[in-house]
Design a protein around this nucleic acid. Structure first.
Lengths: 239, 239
DNA sequence: CGCCAGCTTGAATCTACTCAAATCTTGTGG
DNA sequence: CCACAAGATTTGAGTAGATTCAAGCTGGCG
């Protein structure tokens, strides 16, 4: 797992790479990010980056590791809103004294840093706006998944989304990426039971749609799968 | 239904009333809103205020009527993301050349106007930020509803949300409000079939949780219902 | 008056859930 | 290096909740 914490061969850290993919960053942005990255800190697995109902102190930039935005019901049921991946921002918002509307919990050990404040760079501000718009688009995708897709389609659709997002950070290639999720976590994201997720995964494996051995997921034909589950492209700007 | 298009007895139009409830507005904001309201226009039922994939030209403020943010699947399935009520903003975002990530369709005849641009008033800007944060909170609530609530709970929870939101605009009182939805539309919002929505509504009526005669919905005991479905309060700021 | 959209009802089916137990993995300490 | 524990995955049988399909009903409107 040395790879995960190091700059990949492309020459950029995954988080920077993702932001740069959203909006090509200028020197000021690159410098601010390099600087912020210096002061990175680790977060242990299962720790909360943000607690529902608590005031948001700062905006974080995820450098490494996965987290989940989650909400708990009084009776113990749990729903994962979306996954937080390297290059994602946690706690980005505009209002005064913002309060977290959901908990963000580390699914793996993580590396995070304070995001450079707005106003640092014109291009960085635009990247933040894009990031926020994309996050909202992913929430809409999640709603459609839960409301109108079958269990089989939900799994395929979510895997495609993760693949697309990780590709931007350079963490997925050709439908292949490291996936640090348990079937139980997947179930909480997909609105299913762990048992049913297991059965659907086996079905998908038998159908040669994907393989998920150990901690790596491979989508054998992302294009065909996208067609099959009717996943629309995620776009938030024109041009 | 004269009431709907007129200034209510409280002295403020529902849309202004809602924004004012989010952040107490200053004179500049009130004036800008009054001015914008002058240039209101109507939108016919079933017309689209915004089309998925199309560039967003302007931000709209809903003065009267209901709309739905909806996404269509290739095979005809349909999912409603959330409902757009008087006082809500449509197409509010920060990025350049934004593209709508979902279609917004009028469920009733509507009255809308161009929202006063940002920078008009400090308080109005804050109200916009609040509105956006609330909208995101409602998307999270929708995800939890679809992912982890039973059909019966989904209906109760959504009715409570609509009640809370309409109360802010002065359009609901004591759990009673006009609801211009068909059971089919409700089904598309709740991720259920119309037939099942019908059965669950009857069950809720028999249990004296609500009555829905004609076009008015009455929640007989919102507090008890909130308890029963485990609905958490919607908060986005401290203090 | 008759049409149409929306609502209601019934019966059969199916998807996903529950509960329970077995098996496989992984990490840890002896 | 093996034994063990804890966590995660897999399997099976029975059940419940929601869907499908089809038909009948109701009320508002031209």
């Amino acid at each position: 797992m040395i790879r995960a914490l190091r700059t990949p061969s492309s020459g950029q850290a995954p988080a920077v790479r993702r932001l740069d993919a959203l909006v090509p960053l200028d020197v000021a942005a690159e410098a601010a990010l390099a600087d912020a990255t210096e002061r990175a800190r680790t977060v242990q697995q299962r720790r909360e980056l943000l607690s529902e109902g608590a005031e948001i102190a700062e905006t974080l930039l995820v450098l490494d590791g996965w987290a989940a935005r989650v909400r708990h019901l009084p009776d113990g049921r749990r729903q994962i809103m979306n996954f937080v991946l390297p290059g994602d921002l946690v706690g980005l918002c505009d209002q005064d004294r913002p309060v977290a509307s959901s908990t963000v919990m580390a699914l793996t050990p993580m590396l995070v840093c304070a995001a450079p404040p707005r106003g640092t760079s014109r291009t960085l501000d635009r990247a933040y706006a894009m990031s926020r718009a994309l996050e909202e688009a992913h929430l809409l995708a999640q709603i459609t998944r839960l409301g109108r897709l079958s269990a089989h389609e939900r799994i395929g659709d979510l895997c495609l989304e993760l693949n697309e997002r990780l590709e931007m950070a350079g963490l997925a290639h050709g439908g292949r990426f490291a996936i640090p999720l348990t079937q139980e976590v997947l179930a909480d994201a997909l609105g299913l039971t762990p048992v049913h997720v297991n059965r659907m995964l086996q079905q998908a494996r038998r159908a040669r749609e994907l393989s998920w051995t150990g901690r790596e997921l491979v989508l054998h034909d992302p294009g065909a799968l996208r067609e099959q589950v009717g996943r629309p492209p995620v776009r938030v700007t024109a041009g």
